[in-house]
Design a binder for these strands. Sequence first.
DNA 1: AGCCATTAGGCCAGATCATGACCTGATGAA
DNA 2: TTCATCAGGTCATGATCTGGCCTAATGGCT
Lengths: 351, 351
Amino acid sequence: MTDTPARLLKLLSLLQTPREWPGGELADRLDVSPRTIRRDIDRLRDLGYPVEASRGSVGGYRLVAGAAMPPLLLDDEEAVAIAVGLRAGAGHAIEGVDEASVRALAKLEQVLPSRLRHRVSALQNATVALTRGDGSTIDPRTLTTLASAVTGRERLRFAYLSGDGTPSKRLVEPCRLVSAGQRWYLVAYDLGREDWRTFRVDRVGEPYATGARFAPRPLPVEGPPDAPAAGPDGARDGSGGGSGKAHGSGGGDAAVFLARSMRRMQPELRLDVRFSAPAEFVAARLPAHLGAPEPDGEGGCRLRSSCTDSLEWVALRLALVDCEFSAQGPPQLVEYLADLGSRLTRAARPV
Amino acid sequence: MTDTPARLLKLLSLLQTPREWPGGELADRLDVSPRTIRRDIDRLRDLGYPVEASRGSVGGYRLVAGAAMPPLLLDDEEAVAIAVGLRAGAGHAIEGVDEASVRALAKLEQVLPSRLRHRVSALQNATVALTRGDGSTIDPRTLTTLASAVTGRERLRFAYLSGDGTPSKRLVEPCRLVSAGQRWYLVAYDLGREDWRTFRVDRVGEPYATGARFAPRPLPVEGPPDAPAAGPDGARDGSGGGSGKAHGSGGGDAAVFLARSMRRMQPELRLDVRFSAPAEFVAARLPAHLGAPEPDGEGGCRLRSSCTDSLEWVALRLALVDCEFSAQGPPQLVEYLADLGSRLTRAARPV
DNA sequence: AGCCATTAGGCCAGATCATGACCTGATGAA
DNA sequence: TTCATCAGGTCATGATCTGGCCTAATGGCT
């Protein structure tokens, strides 16, 4: 309160309000002389925060965009808003910022005052998860716990339900959190199995950081390659995996590792859809990870790709393209579309 | 860099990483003696930041949740992630945090380094707006400009397209930004018309803060009431308006004011839908502002309410409830559902 | 049980730095 | 023009910060 550093923090916080602050007013608020304010502004500038000043009678200081992110000083409601927004987003994992978004959420939730926590979870519950029906909704708390363990390099203990339904207890050294399409995966070294494994986050139960830190292990550049060369499937372009940066975790890239192990175990949805609209039109209205449609026939295009998203989600995205289309496959998708179509038709026929 | 306050900020930033930091490591990173680190930790604690320490050989410091929000120190990717997430959310305006979310976005964008800006907008474009079709997508930039002007109490100049399509130029003193359902509205005092007006944000073009500050005017408690008493429509509960807090802007509540003026001008969608599922089931899967369904018949329920959302959006939400339903009205909705239903049916029938 | 790494904090000397009070200029708006 | 603002110099005083020493307590590991 009476400290210089504290005052600087307060000053930063005031300047973040989107308005201009005359030096006098700042001096008043912070209980120092205007001269000191000027000096403080100087200091902030030296620190790299670009404080812009406009002179003249309606002038004042304000913080503008600069080279580095200044510390964000949020009030309660803003913090809650961000937390809620990120948690909602954690489900759909916006294309390129998947992991960073979870990291930010973890950072925020780590310091979120407890009185705000219940507001967040209340709002969270009020928000209807958009992609229901899949059954496997992701718990943001699980996600942030895992993210914390990854960046904190802490060992993790959790219960896991493998694909065939057998439960197990795991103790792992988490390496990376990766999102692929609708799902999240944890790439980690399993201390029990003494090998690298990938875990589907929605099948992880009650994760718990043991507190023990570990030295990062290099990811195997590649074990037994199940395909000879680089692009066994060809289709996806390089950026498809989502989490671009390699995070500098030594060895191989976690996204690549994930793609490998997924190819072995994931039942994919092999899409084949024809649209009666130009490729650009369709591409602009589809999530990038679903792949790119190619021109086909006059004014039409065709999308052939594969994804691991849920049926409902895919159907929804297709419908939202808002043009005539026709699904050739996979069969489950065709069936689901038929079902949804007739349900809506029935809904439109008053009883 | 060489300054005490700078070091404190750095320290805060390090502590926000979700891991434990031994004092020695901190001292090393910040290039000061361990003793100074201990003192700095003390200082942070005095400032109210709850730094927790665990002793013992694997101990260390970490920042935990406390009474107040500490300044968030984000790295580049995290900042981008939050910005993208909030912008995506700005469209759907999550129930209770509408305005705070925009305020946070404004605060962030004010200081977001320009090299990150283009990353944000690139990702933004990659993300398909979920509620297309309406045509009136909201520009996040517009929204944040308006929000800044509201909290900064700066006069605004913008072009406006009124409901009947006539363009005009406005100079206003913005009072509040309110979200109702899918849309955003600006409540402001129009200096040209010399009266209070509400503007639909999606019809605002090129807003621009003049820089001139103004003293907040009290909102009229109510002008000519077009309905006798408090609840003319009865249906909605108090929290329906969205933006709970009155923001202490003197006079009447902006949300109330908006509701009044909207009642005069908005073509509402008067929903009437019967679901073949229990009321609780349906309520849990519908956004709260669409109203609450009431039990009707055996194991069914009926939703009668009104909203100003777009047709497509409402239809989507209804379909996502994932149970048999039947729309009695309004006619546009029935027609749209029939159309969508047959389109999906066609899509499921391979050519 | 014993060892070790960690936090916690007292004391002191010396250097550094922040503060407020004064001053002069420059700038932009009304 | 006149005013309010930013910008910065200088100076004396006093507070404060730092590093280095010290001791104590705690918790995990072997």
